[in-house]
């Protein structure tokens, strides 16, 4: 799937300019992370991807079709959107009904819904809670219930708004598995997140926003190498990336194993692993 945003501008009714000329193409199956400080315009941008918000100026093309030609309910067939707060999304009296709601609206037949229910419930870890009331789920489970209810709709693109918020390690791992599964199925996953460790681990492409504009758009290596721009946008790279940078390892690293490899490479290359104290002191935490 391909989503083109052309000169996108959005001004909220109370006058706040949330998007200020965004040009962006999202395509393929590479998961994309949208990062940036609060108020950068990430959620506003994401809400344009299925027409929840309509641009004040500019346009959005989904597989070449202007988004303005149909309403959100119709675009729901192509783009799934998981809201930041699951309480905004869940309204039925069982997880099962929540899961079935979207596909029913889209006219999926009963067999398909049942098959997908099994897969998705396993994926989001709610297989044995299908008959529970969503209000009885823990906040984390609620989030996965909301995610599951959107995954059920089998859309070509899935947008997650802050799925990492309030998640523990198990939750993060489950999310990572979901994102990997989407990629495996050739679906485009666009995720808003403030958790840079999670972003660096799971998203090959990163888009950095500030003040309604795209500051950086590229591979995670390219984006996390731009310390100057990241600092200007108040985004801190993952700790291990900063440590590697501080001691002068080549290129941004995102995992412990990559860090160790890079350190070995540096050592065997008989380069001076510059544990240079003056430099280390100068870098802000």
């Amino acid at each position: 799937m391909k989503i083109d945003l052309e000169h996108l501008e959005y001004v909220y009714p109370h006058g706040h300019r949330a998007l200020d000329g965004v040009n962006l193409t999202l395509e393929g199956d590479q998961p994309v992370a949208l990062i940036g400080q609060n108020g950068a315009g990430k959620t506003t941008l994401a809400k344009h991807l299925n027409g929840i918000l309509r641009p004040t100026k500019g346009r959005i093309l989904i597989d070449g079709v202007d988004l303005a030609t149909a309403n959100t309910a119709q675009w729901a067939r192509k783009v799934g959107y998981v809201f930041q707060n699951p309480d905004d999304q869940l309204f039925l009296d069982s997880v099962r009904k929540e899961f079935a709601f979207g596909p029913r609206q889209l006219g999926f037949d009963q067999d398909l819904i049942a098959r997908r229910m099994e897969q998705v419930a396993g994926l989001v870890g709610l297989a044995d809670r299908l008959d529970d009331h969503p209000f009885d789920l823990s906040p984390t489970e609620k989030k996965f219930c909301a995610i599951g209810s959107v995954l059920m709709m089998d859309t070509g693109t899935v947008v997650f708004d802050e799925p990492t918020c309030g998640q523990d390690k198990a939750g993060d791992d489950r999310l990572a598995a979901i994102i990997a599964r989407l990629r495996g199925q050739g679906r485009l996953c666009i995720t808003i997140s403030h958790d840079m460790k999670f972003v660096a681990r799971n998203f090959p492409r990163v888009v950095l926003m500030q003040h309604g504009r795209v500051l950086l758009d590229g591979s995670r290596e390219e984006v996390f190498a731009r310390d100057d721009v990241l600092e200007q946008a108040y985004v801190t790279p993952p700790p291990i990336t900063r440590v590697a940078r501080q001691i002068g390892l080549d290129g941004p690293v995102f995992t412990v194993s990559a860090f160790v490899d890079a350190a070995w490479r540096a050592k065997s290359g008989s380069r001076n692993l510059s544990l240079d104290t003056t430099r280390a002191k100068g870098v802000k935490q």
């Binding site: 309910a73 609206q105 209810s149 709709m153």
Partner: peptide, 18 residues
Amino acid sequence: RRIAVIEQSQHARGLETG
């Protein structure tokens, strides 16, 4: 405000309220 957001999220799940 809440109804507006919930309505948005239901649209995003394919519900036609028009």
